[in-house]
Design a protein around this nucleic acid. Structure first.
Length: 560
DNA sequence: AGTTTCGGCGCC
DNA sequence: AAAGGGCGCCGAAACT
């Protein structure tokens, strides 16, 4: 029994609310109130709030201590519906959706986030796009009808509701922040980089390594300048195209070791060093801005602080509050398990029906027990590897798990032929860009001159099309995994609602819950249950299991 | 001078 | 012979 209300912020800071019936249409008078937080707090019986945009509304509710059970984010739903309808290029704002309904001129979307560090969040800037509640309700009613017309209406409803749940989780994480010990972070930096010199120059250890590199070359070399390093190697009679680790690593030259060490530490210094600490950590919390569904595959992104790329060594600084713990949970072999569920390959489902190491099981069936080779083969199939051992291993994989490989092959072919590709729940990848875009340039192929000859001849796909195929091949797995992960998060969030536990971090297949030590056991169980529930809800009844490795720790770095 | 792209690498 | 997918971030380089 859901009690659904709609809510729209007004220009004057007030709010309009209205009750909705089971059909999604207004079931009572439209009410005007002065304070959004009070409007929500005074209606505890409401289980789902329908609103334009969670990032617009929810942070100000959280700021006053108000949480909601569920919501429906109209603009996120519009994005998903447009994508599903093959209209991903059309403006996704509620105002645009309303204009399409009423046949008026469709306003373009407000510009996306401004570039550059220190820029204000785009999410909180979209103030010019208020829509009166009556208009919002028209869009909502239309969206409900469009769900019915989707390829799988039930899945589409699940997708938009779980995406909405994701926006709530993200907003709450942004509000809570990740517990962060600045003191520990400084200790880690000092241990790795040595003293920090005044004036922002290189710390001691980096300066020493730069000296070692220079000594090895016999001349002054700046290791942070790729062009300088390439010149230096050329001077030593070694031709390199780039200074990437995989290209430099195998060279026989005394500069290599200090150079690689420099690059590793330089990265820590510039991306997660003292200035990062100053910019992003306040009052014992790292506050990145999580954004649910920020990518075409449905994975989240963050803005600011690189929250999804925290280096392993820096995780030492993620420390629970006194008396609290971090429950760190990592889904085991999520992608092949998802592939089993979406392809319904009997062999792979059977393997994925056990909680034990999936790659080990695959290796025993198809690779004489060579786990590393099995893992490479599976990931190669998912990522579209086109060369090396992966190709050979793919044949072995195909013999044992034909439906699984066929599933990703079909997705790749669909992409190459320009067809739409969807995740299990119906998130749809936008159609390919114009021919000649991006990929050809990367490959150094001039655009225009021979574009026709390059592509679309039988049996040979163009560079663009093959890149497209790799993308769609990966999309169905990565995106369906994101479908599952959202439902898992939503279930876990609900389990934590009655506890002090707070969700503080989410990274594709990994979640961290911060909770009092006494709640850790309950949280661990809740994660297991959420994972299995999400598996059933997302993919229906399959034998596939979704086990998590969980660790109850005081410090993130101790989890693995 | 300010803005965009590049090279490289962090995470999954 | 071979270019495996998705992201964000930084400074330098390249551009306007």
């Amino acid at each position: 029994m859901t009690d659904r209300w709609a809510l729209a912020l007004a220009e004057d800071g007030g709010v309009e609310v209205a009750p909705l019936g089971p059909d999604g249409l207004p079931a009572g008078p439209l009410l005007r109130e002065s304070d959004p937080a009070r409007a929500v707090r005074s209606r505890p019986e409401v289980t789902r709030w329908v609103w334009r945009s969670t990032p617009e509304v929810y942070p100000r509710l959280l700021a006053t201590g108000v949480r909601v059970e569920r919501c429906y984010d109209i603009e996120d739903a519009e994005t998903l519906l447009l994508g599903h309808e093959g209209r991903s290029g059309e403006p996704r704002s509620a105002a645009a959706a309303l204009a399409r309904l009423r046949g008026g001129p469709v306003p373009p979307d407000p510009r996306t986030r401004p570039a550059g560090p220190g820029a204000q969040s785009a999410l909180f800037e979209q103030s010019g796009t208020h829509l009166p509640l009556t208009g919002l309700l028209e869009v909502y009613a239309d969206q409900l009808r469009r769900h019915d017309k989707a390829e799988h209406p039930g899945r589409m409803r699940l997708l938009t509701s779980s995406e909405s749940a994701g926006t709530l989780v993200a907003a709450e994480m942004n509000h809570t922040g990740l517990p962060w010990s600045a003191e520990t972070h400084r200790e880690v930096l000092r241990g790795l980089l040595g003293e920090r010199y005044a004036g922002g120059g290189e710390p001691r250890r980096l300066a020493e390594l730069a000296d070692e590199v220079s000594a090895a070359f016999g001349r002054r070399v700046r290791p942070d300048l790729p062009a300088d390093v390439i010149r230096a190697f050329a001077g030593a009679g070694i031709k390199v195209r780039s200074t990437r680790r995989w290209e430099i690593g195998s060279l026989d030259h005394p500069a290599v070791a200090p150079l690689l060490e420099y690059k590793k530490l330089y990265r820590i210094w510039v991306a997660h060093g003292w200035s990062w600490l100053h910019d992003w950590v306040r009052d014992g919390r790292f506050r990145p801005e999580f954004q649910a569904g920020g990518t075409v595959t449905g994975r989240w992104v963050t803005h600011g602080g690189g929250a999804l790329q925290i280096p392993k060594v820096i995780r030492r600084a993620v420390v629970a509050d006194p008396g609290w713990r971090l429950v760190v949970a990592d889904a085991d072999q999520m992608e092949p398990r998802v592939l089993a569920a979406i392809s319904r390959d009997p062999g792979l489902m059977e393997v994925a029906g056990r909680e034990s190491d999936l790659y080990q099981s695959v290796s025993e069936r198809a690779f004489s027990g060579d786990r590393a080779q099995a893992k490479l083969a599976v990931l190669g199939a998912v990522y579209g590897q086109t060369s090396g051992d992966g190709l050979k291993n793919l044949a072995a994989l195909r013999r044992r798990f034909p439906l699984a490989v066929a599933y990703v092959d079909d997705a790749a072919r669909a992409g190459e032929e320009g067809r739409l590709v969807r995740t299990w729940l119906g998130r749809t990848c936008p159609p390919a860009g114009r021919p000649g875009e991006d990929v050809a340039e990367e490959a150094g192929i001039p655009i225009g001159s021979d574009a026709e000859e390059r592509g679309w001849t039988p049996g040979y796909a163009s560079t663009d099309a093959r890149a497209r195929g790799r993308f769609t091949r990966n999309f169905v797995v990565q995106g369906s995994a994101a479908d599952w992960a959202l439902l898992m998060l939503a279930a876990l969030r609900r389990s934590c609602a009655g506890l002090s536990a707070e969700l503080v971090f989410f990274q594709h297949d990994e979640v961290i819950v911060h909770c009092p030590a006494g709640e850790a056991g309950v949280v661990v169980s809740a994660i297991r249950e959420a994972a299995e529930l999400a598996g059933r809800l997302t993919f229906g009844e399959t034998p596939v299991r979704f086990p998590f490795s969980t660790a109850v720790v005081e410090c993130y770095a101790d989890a693995k």
